[in-house]
Amino acid sequence: MDIEAINLTKKYGSFYALKDLNLKISGSKCVGYLGPNGAGKTTTLKLFTHLLNPTRGEAIINGYNVNKEIKKALRDVGTLIETPDFYPYLTPIETLEMLCRIRFADRCEIKNALEEVGMYEWRNKKIGKFSKGMKQRIAIAAALVTNPSVIILDEPTTGMDPKGMVEIRYVIKNLKKEKRLIFMSSHLLPEVTEVCDEVAMINCGTLLLYDSIHSIMEKFRGHAVEVAAMNEISVDRIMNIKGVKSVEKITPTKIRIDFEDGAEMQHKILQSLLKMGIKVVEYRSAGIALEKAYIELIGGGKK
């Protein structure tokens, strides 16, 4: 199971949608692909799924060049690119049957795939009348139905209601247990933190970072906490706590504390607050490490 981009480039006129991307992802894991709108995420995924032809470079899946050996390269790949539409005259069952037939795959997984995305009760209705969220669920079922070892997902929770988003994240997390390589683009940082093991960040068509979530957490750990209390908090008293750099009042009962360094310091500040008699009801890191990394790297990329 591996996906590899070698100097992968897509150019429209003089504009580089993707420039010399070199990235190799191997093994059973879930990799989040992050970047702002227009960064080149969807372009990359389209190059890996033969929807675009590269200007130069190679998109390789399981050792096969997608552009030259499409049948071998995509044989064991499930995809969801943008929000696809389906043939309106087919039902979900017929749509997945068509896919299984094209791929010469076993059709016994159709029921499971539809159940997994919560669309089994709609199995015999024509897709033409479905909402965008329902079509997105069918698209995810289509990516899973042939039981592929490599899954490429382009913003899989787009167009879904909050309940649907939670369900799809649960499906993706379950997929990770079954030895698969999942390459998933998203601009939802909490989603990537929750679901993925590794992250690749891209901006302006250039790869900025590829690392594990754990490593990013270490590198970009935040040094600020948000505190909520039952009563009004006195900022002056908190400024006297050792290690506190600054205190910002968000609301009378909620503050943000910037401190010097480390998890130990974070713990000591909490102890001090409690000793002061502040009735703390919420104490959490302000901003996630991934968000910090994203803002630092993507912000830098824009300069």
Binding site: L51, L74, R75, E82, P84, F86, Y87, I152
Partner: peptide
């Protein structure tokens, strides 16, 4: 036009 290509094309089919 109907975006059904996003469903059909990324398959192991020429």
């Amino acid at each position: 036009q109907n975006r059904t290509g996003y469903f059909l094309f990324p398959n192991p089919i020429k």
